[in-house]
Design a protein around this nucleic acid. Sequence first.
DNA 1: ACAAACCCAATTGTCTGACAAATGATTTTT
DNA 2: AAAAATCATTTGTCAGACAATTGGGTTTGT
Lengths: 247, 247
Amino acid sequence: MIFMKTDLEQNRDLSAQIAKAIRDAIITGEMNTDDRLPSEAELADQFNVSRSTVREALKRLAAQNLIRTRRGATGGAFVHRLSYAEAYADHITTSTLLLSMNAVDFETACEARFALERACAPLSATRRSPDHLATMRAEVHRQSQPGLSDEGFCDSDVAFHRALVDGAANPVLSYQLAGAVEAMQPLMNMITFTARSREAIIAFHTRITDALEAHDADGVDTALSELARYTLGLGQKAMAARAAHRR
Amino acid sequence: MIFMKTDLEQNRDLSAQIAKAIRDAIITGEMNTDDRLPSEAELADQFNVSRSTVREALKRLAAQNLIRTRRGATGGAFVHRLSYAEAYADHITTSTLLLSMNAVDFETACEARFALERACAPLSATRRSPDHLATMRAEVHRQSQPGLSDEGFCDSDVAFHRALVDGAANPVLSYQLAGAVEAMQPLMNMITFTARSREAIIAFHTRITDALEAHDADGVDTALSELARYTLGLGQKAMAARAAHRR
DNA sequence: ACAAACCCAATTGTCTGACAAATGATTTTT
DNA sequence: AAAAATCATTTGTCAGACAATTGGGTTTGT
C-alpha cells in the first residue's frame, strides 16, 4: 500500500487528513485485515510530513479500533479486524453518552428499548438455547435476593434482557440492540425500586422466561409489552418525584 | 479540571492511559459539555509527560468526537456535545465495517433489519408526518424511473426505509436502526435487480406507504414481513448465482 | 549438529526544543 | 471613536534524539 502526498489538500489539520486517507483505504477494502501499513517513517515520507503528524493520525485510527500497533523489528501498524466484542463496547458507551448529553427522556428511551426487544422475541422464542434460559433464570434469582442494591438490580435487569436478545441468535440484532438496552441503565438507575415493584418485575421476568422455554412467542410478546407499560409507569413516577423534590 | 500523574500506571502506552483518564472524566460527567480542558502544556505538566504524548492522547479523543480543539489565545480542547448526526455517521460506518469484516451472511443481516423495522412500524403508523409520507412517495417514484442504476435503486431503498423508521419520531430508535438499515446496503448492492423484481419491491413499498398513510399498523406489518421474505429470496438467489459463478 | 547466548536492525514510544499559524485581547495610532 | 498594530496564548508542525521492544541472525559452547 502506497500513499501519496496528493491525497491531501494543501489546507490544514494534516493529521486528520492523513487519518482520513488511510481510513478510506481500509473501509473501501483497498487494505485487508492484518495488512501492514507502511512504517511511520515511510508514511511521513509518502505524505511529506513529519513523523509526529503521522503518529497523531495513527492514534486517531487506533482510537477507532481500525488499526493495532506492535513494536519491534516485525512490528508496525496492522489493519485490525473489528470484532463484535469491541464494537459492542464502543456502541454502548457512545449510546450512553448520546442519551445523557442530549437529555433523552425516559419515555423515549423506554419505548425504543421495548420496541426493539419485542422485535427479537419471536426469534428468541424459536431459537433460545438452554444456556440463554439458564442465564435468565439465574438473573431472576439474583434479582430476588433481599440484600441486592438498586444498582445491582439494574445490572441484573440488563443482563436478563441481553440474554433475551442474544437468544435470537443473530449477532447483528444483538449488536444493534446492545446500545438500546444498556444505554437505558443510567436512566433506570434513577429509579428507587420498592420491594413491591421488584416483585412485579421479577414476576414479568419469570413469565417471559417461562414463555420462552415453551417456545411461546405470543406469551413473550404479551409479557414484554406489559413489562414495558409497567416500567414506563415506574419511570414516570420517579421523574415526577425528582421534579417535586427539586422544587 | 485538574489531572494528576497518579491517574496513570507506571506501565506503557502513556497516551492511551491519558486518553482513558480524560475520557473517564467526560463520561462520568466530571466534565460537562463545552468545558475547556487544560492546555496541552498544562496537561503535560500534570501527567508529567511530554507535550507530544498529550497530543496523541487528545487526537484519540478527537477521533471519538469527545473533544474539539480550537487554535488561538482563547483556544484549546473543549468537551464536545455528541450530536445525533455525528453519532449516526459513526454508527453507520462501524456497522458496515463490522458486517463486511466478519462476513455476515445475507440472511442474518436481512432478518435483523426487517425485525427491527417491524418494531418501528406500529409507532410509525401512529406518528408519521406528511413529510415522511412525502419522502417515501418520492423515493418510490425515483425507484420506478427506468434509467436508474442498481446502486441508485439501493440508495433509494435505504432512503425509503429510513423515512419509515424516522416516522416513529423516536430519535433513539432512529439511531439504533440506522446501523441495521444502512449496513445492509453493501449486501443489497450485490443483487442485480431485474425489472420484474423492481416492480415487486415498488409494489411492496407502495403498499407500505398506503398503509402508513391510513394509520394501518397491521397493514404495514404484513407488507413488511412479505417484503422481508421476498428480499431474502432475492438475496439467496444472488448468493447462489455468485457461488455458481465462482465455481 | 544442536542449543544457548549474544548481537543487530527495524520499529514504535517518548522527550526536547523550536517555529509557524491562528486568534482574541490590548495598546497605539489616526 | 474607529482602525491599525502589537501581544500573549494556544494549537499545529517539524526535526532530531534516545529508549524500549522484538524478531532474526550470528557466534559460541558442548
